[in-house]
Amino acid sequence: MRKLILAISTLAFAGSAAFADPIQERQALMKERGKIAGQLSKVVKGEAAYDAAAVLVALKALQANAEKFHANVETLFPAGSETGDTTAAPKIWEDMAGFKAIEEKYLADVKAAAAAAPADVDALKAGFNTIGGDCGTCHQTYRIKKG
């Protein structure tokens, strides 16, 4: 029993420590998001076979990522975290309401795509194109392009 309590305490501490650096936490979420989107993109482009179960798993993972981001947007973008090793544009802090609106649309579109459980590649393309559009809108306004 002691080992179980110690393990739970360690995990709880590790979970709270992850937010000690909001820049690293939001970068980790975006990298995870990019990896999942990359898997779906391969299916959409015909570079990977369509597998309904695998697509649904990926969409659910994208939804979990979006929900975590949504639930923690305030702690991921606190004042002062706009400087340092980040590509988050100052526009986020200047227009937090606009940033949150785009993020909420993204979350709703990801949830809709996952709930639809696309039956084929064409259905996946429709939802994925909407999600990709959300990403593009956010990146154009709220992200600094690298080099």
Score class of each variant (00 low, 15 high):
residue 2 R to P: 02
residue 3 K to P: 00
residue 6 L to R: 08
residue 6 L to G: 00
residue 6 L to P: 00
residue 8 I to D: 02
residue 8 I to H: 01
residue 9 S to A: 15
residue 9 S to M: 13
residue 10 T to C: 13
residue 17 A to N: 06
residue 19 F to A: 09
residue 21 D to N: 15
residue 22 P to N: 13
residue 22 P to I: 12
residue 23 I to P: 02
residue 25 E to L: 09
residue 25 E to H: 07
residue 26 R to S: 06
residue 27 Q to C: 00
residue 28 A to Y: 07
residue 28 A to L: 13
residue 29 L to Y: 11
residue 32 E to V: 00
residue 32 E to H: 10
residue 32 E to L: 12
residue 45 K to T: 10
residue 47 E to M: 09
residue 53 A to I: 10
residue 53 A to G: 02
residue 57 V to C: 01
residue 58 A to I: 01
residue 59 L to A: 03
residue 61 A to S: 14
residue 61 A to F: 02
residue 63 Q to T: 09
residue 67 E to N: 12
residue 68 K to A: 14
residue 70 H to D: 15
residue 71 A to I: 03
residue 71 A to S: 14
residue 75 T to C: 00
residue 75 T to F: 01
residue 77 F to W: 14
residue 80 G to W: 04
residue 80 G to C: 06
residue 83 T to L: 08
residue 84 G to Y: 13
residue 84 G to D: 14
residue 88 A to I: 06
residue 88 A to G: 10
residue 89 A to C: 00
residue 91 K to H: 10
residue 92 I to A: 07
residue 93 W to L: 07
residue 97 A to Y: 01
residue 98 G to K: 05
residue 99 F to Q: 02
residue 101 A to F: 00
residue 101 A to G: 01
residue 102 I to G: 00
residue 106 Y to S: 12
residue 108 A to T: 08
residue 108 A to Y: 03
residue 110 V to K: 06
residue 110 V to G: 04
residue 111 K to I: 06
residue 112 A to D: 02
residue 113 A to V: 03
residue 113 A to R: 01
residue 118 P to Q: 07
residue 119 A to Y: 00
residue 120 D to V: 04
residue 120 D to N: 15
residue 125 K to N: 11
residue 126 A to G: 01
residue 126 A to L: 11
residue 127 G to A: 08
residue 128 F to Q: 07
residue 129 N to P: 00
residue 129 N to I: 06
residue 130 T to H: 06
residue 131 I to G: 04
residue 132 G to E: 08
residue 134 D to Q: 08
residue 134 D to T: 08
residue 135 C to A: 10
residue 135 C to M: 10
residue 135 C to H: 11
residue 137 T to Q: 15
residue 137 T to R: 14
residue 140 Q to H: 07
residue 140 Q to Y: 12
residue 144 I to M: 12
residue 145 K to W: 04
residue 145 K to G: 09
residue 146 K to E: 15
